[in-house]
Design a binder for these strands. Sequence first.
DNA 1: GCCAACGTTGGC
DNA 2: GCCAACGTTGGC
Length: 154
Amino acid sequence: MSYWLFKTEPDDISLQDIEKAGSKGLRWEGIRNYQARNFLRDQFAVGDEVLVYHSRCKAVGVVGTAQVVASAYPDPAQLDRSSRYFDAKATLDAPRWFCVDIRFATRFTQPLLLSTIKADPQLNDMVLVKQGRLSVQPVKPEEWQYIMQRYSKG
DNA sequence: GCCAACGTTGGC
DNA sequence: GCCAACGTTGGC
């Protein structure tokens, strides 16, 4: 049982889109970074919990949580020529990229802003702060618990 | 939309 | 296998 953070641009996929997908969940596709891929492929398990973080928008920060409902499988988009996530170097036998399915769990009463995370000594050691460009990243259990307690209810 | 930071590619 | 050029991420 692990904790994670997913970045997403809400103009593309938002927490609301995850919520709309319902209990069957939403495929988290299009991850095209090796470090993120390795986390997905090697460490994700059904039941893991995910902070959903909105990037490149007005209110940058964590807006809610989701839960993993399917562990890693090859991302079908890598073989789909019509997809923006198509990868000519990937094959059915040797897939390069993996995805998981998640479903909506909770929405924070107000977003936990990046500026707040950076200003909070309990959180400013998060991977999010340390390593700028990583769209799938681990969250420490103590960070998760602190965020839920301190920030999820506004 | 700008641009700094950083991951990836490819020539050598 | 180095590293310059290139492309992308993501805060602002």
